[in-house]
Amino acid sequence: MKLPENVEKPLRVALVSLLVCGLLFPLAVTGISELVFPYQANGEQVTLNNTTVGSALIAQDFNASVFFHPRNSSASSVDPDITIGDAYGQIGRISNATGISGGTLKGIVNSLADSTLFFFGSRYVNIISLNLYLIKHYPSIYDRYVKT
């Protein structure tokens, strides 16, 4: 059966573009990414005691008062970061619960903080990095809170 030309041509162009843009392109990007940036390509997975405990980019619940907590309302609802002010506001509670001095905690927050506009702008800090730092550097306090 021969299709009329004004049906056949768009059908052919659509098929070629489907295969190239919808299949070959994402597959090529996947291949190279898995090879060159395997950590990023798989969602920056964080492991602790040989178990995947989450992603550095996705917020998770930290119930205990010894941890920094994420915000609940945010546009994506999985915002892994808090503002520097929010982090400072949690220092008192964490210091009371752990005995780590407020000054030390503030130093940790500052050392891990980033800026929204590279050299200026508002500062923010990733709660997963913060809590992992505490778990690694204060095992005697934190080990019993790690349930993974």
Partner: peptide
Amino acid sequence: VLANTISGG
């Protein structure tokens, strides 16, 4: 990916 979170979830 299923992750077992630090707080046990």
